[in-house]
């Protein structure tokens, strides 16, 4: 350890997370804090927690990323989540050439060169369908937690086809399918498939190269991972701490520059 310890904070639309990095390994990472209405406050809480867990008082530099990055006045710099995720994944899985990130309210696909350099990217930030929000909303409709919803979906052999791309219409479509006798598993799997198809469609505009990885909180959902691999026709890896990829990238950029 050369004493140049840095911090990365990712203020997503749903959760905020911070991480302390010493150039070689992650010294600590905060739990996920809800971003809520006060992003700066959440960022500070997450950062202080990570500092405490790392057993250090100060870091040499802090970089913020994510949707709430500009509200973090104590950060030295900010970078977009595109750049941060790309840099983070290149440390965790250097071979990755396509990165998919599904966040709380948007989804992104990045084509990468060696070292996490972004060649091209596409974003869906206009519509809830294709994001974690879509999943959350429909799980709620079924009276399930997102985790329960995902596990149920994973067991399905025969996902239903959902035609509505709009969250609002999808809800009534699901309800009518259930009323017509479709199983909860198949409906849940259908929802997962529809998100994967939407993201894959966006990815195809970039001509994705293998191997691909999946970051962001939604990557913990193994049903989406399975469906994404199916839709893209390539293997999709999930890094060890998918929710912290952005924060890690920010901490690395704090140390090494862009």
């Amino acid at each position: 350890m050369d004493g140049r310890i840095t911090g990365g904070i990712d203020i997503g639309s749903r959760t905020t997370k911070a991480l302390i990095w010493d150039g070689d390994r992650v010294l600590s990472r905060s739990p996920l804090f809800s971003t809520g209405w006060a992003p700066e406050e959440s960022a500070l809480r997450a950062f202080e927690r990570a500092l405490k867990d790392a057993g250090c008082k100060i870091v040499s530099k802090v970089v913020a990323t994510g949707y709430g990055r500009i509200s973090v006045s104590f950060a030295d710099e900010s970078v977009t989540e595109i750049t941060a995720h790309a840099r983070g994944i290149s440390r965790l899985l250097p071979e990755i050439r396509t990165l998919i990130d599904i966040g709380g309210q948007d989804s992104k696909v990045m084509l990468l060169e060696e070292g996490g350099l972004v060649i091209d990217f596409a974003m869906n930030d206009r519509c809830a369908a294709g994001s974690g929000k879509f999943l959350e909303f429909l799980a709620l409709t079924m009276n399930l937690s997102v985790e329960e919803f995902a596990e149920l979906a994973y067991t399905s052999q025969n996902p239903v086809q959902i035609s509505s791309m709009c969250t609002v219409f999808a809800e009534s479509e699901l309800l009518s399918m259930l009323a017509e006798g479709a199983s909860l598993e198949d409906v849940a799997a259908g929802v997962h498939r529809s998100i994967a198809l939407r993201v894959a469609q966006m990815a195809r505009t970039l001509h994705p190269n293998p191997p691909a990885a999946f970051s962001g909180g939604v990557a913990l959902n193994r049903c989406i991972v399975k469906e994404l691999a199916r839709a893209l026709g390539i293997e999709v890896k999930v890094p060890e701490i998918p929710e912290y990829v952005g924060a890690l990238g920010a901490a690395i950029i704090a140390r090494e520059g862009l």
């Binding site: 977009t80 750049t83 350099l117 930030d125 206009r126 862009l258």
Partner: peptide, 22 residues
């Protein structure tokens, strides 16, 4: 929606800067 466009521009220019540095 405008802030999303700004976000894309920022990411794009960051990537060009990183590419230049590389």
């Amino acid at each position: 929606m405008q802030s999303q466009v700004f976000n894309r521009m920022e990411a794009f220019i960051e990537s060009l800067r990183a590419r230049r540095k590389r």
